[in-house]
């Protein structure tokens, strides 16, 4: 069964009709962990707001748990959980007060759905008398997730929950999401971090209001047909310059300690390339063929 269905959704803003979401269609299956991956301005937040009934689309239809986002907005508001971008809770209320307030607003109690948040809540429970404003970024995030889960939503919308969060807290957050998935909650999450994409069941790579590609992370990577090489040298910036100037290069860019590059004719003439590098006086050169990552796929789609 489909938890979320979006058909030909378009959203523009203001008098100039700035296009935020451009004729998008996709669907998310029940219990799926679905990722909208893309930079700022890709249209992720607009999609979230339309699906959570906070905004009306210009055209197209969408439904959540079978409810229409326009007609049945009340039913949707009863069943979904939502964590907006930049969400900051009530800074002057304690952990406990925040949680019990949101529980009451959603017509439930902490006790009633405790089993759902238990895993996460026990980590912050020792500080339950502390005000939200005095919590660390990671703890705030856990509390926000608890608040969004307290009424046992069928579908959970998380808009950039990890933006600006350090890699360690990000990792922990994704572990929590994996565990939640086991509770059969559909989770739709957006992120600008490409490395988080592989943790989703399925992803949509987005840019400029459009979906560039939508599939499982594995299949997106498999769709990368060119042979990809990782090249390393002791001097990174000169290496990038050299790759750019090599006539056989299709595309080259930095990627961590390596540079990634694709070549014309799938690089049949490796010796010639190695000679070219040697002439440029690069040291410690290392070349290897590698599997593409989501980020490589995204870069290719943008070109």
């Amino acid at each position: 069964m489909e938890a979320v269905v979006v058909q030909n959704m378009t959203k523009t803003y203001g008098k100039e009709k700035t296009l935020a979401v451009d004729n998008i269609s996709f669907s998310v299956a029940k219990g799926e962990l679905f990722g909208l991956i893309g930079p700022d301005g890709a249209g992720k937040t607009s999609i979230f707001r339309i699906l959570t009934t906070l905004l009306l689309a210009d055209s197209g239809t969408a439904s959540v748990d079978g409810f229409d986002v326009v007609k049945d907005f009340k039913s949707i508001r009863n069943t979904v959980g939502y964590m907006p971008v930049k969400f900051s809770l009530y800074q002057d209320l304690t952990i406990e007060e925040n949680l019990s307030f949101f529980a009451t607003v959603f017509g439930t109690t902490i006790e009633a759905n405790y089993d759902l948040i238990k895993d996460i809540y026990v980590q912050i429970e020792p500080f339950k008398k502390r005000r939200a404003g005095k919590l660390s970024g990671g703890m705030k995030q856990k509390l926000a997730l608890c608040c969004a889960l307290i009424h046992k939503p069928t579908t959970l919308f998380l808009d950039e929950p990890t933006t600006g969060v350090d890699p360690v807290s990000r990792k922990e957050f994704w572990e929590m999401l994996r565990r939640l998935k086991e509770q059969n909650i559909t989770i739709i999450v957006s992120t600008p971090y490409m490395d988080e994409a592989s943790l989703c069941d399925r992803i949509a790579l987005m840019q400029g209001g459009k979906i560039l590609s939508i599939d499982t992370p594995d299949d997106i990577v498999k769709a990368y047909r060119e042979k990809l090489y990782a090249i390393k040298a002791n001097e990174m910036y000169p290496l990038l310059k050299v790759l750019e100037n090599y006539p056989g290069t299709l595309n080259s860019y930095a990627f961590g300690e390596y540079a990634h590059a694709t070549f014309k004719d799938q690089m049949k003439n490796m010796e010639e390339f190695e000679r070219f590098l040697a002439e440029k006086q690069l040291t410690g050169v290392e070349i290897k063929s590698i599997e593409a990552t989501i980020e490589d796929s995204f870069i290719k789609l943008l070109h």
Binding site: R49, T52, T53, L54, K74, I76, R77, N78, V80, Y82, M83, P84, V85, K86, F87, S88, L89, Y90, Q91, F102, V105, F106, G107, C147, A148
Partner: peptide, 13 residues
């Protein structure tokens, strides 16, 4: 400003 209004709107209240 803090985004809590969004949550309150997306609630049965």
């Amino acid at each position: 400003e803090t985004g809590t209004m969004e949550i309150l709107l997306v609630s049965p209240f």
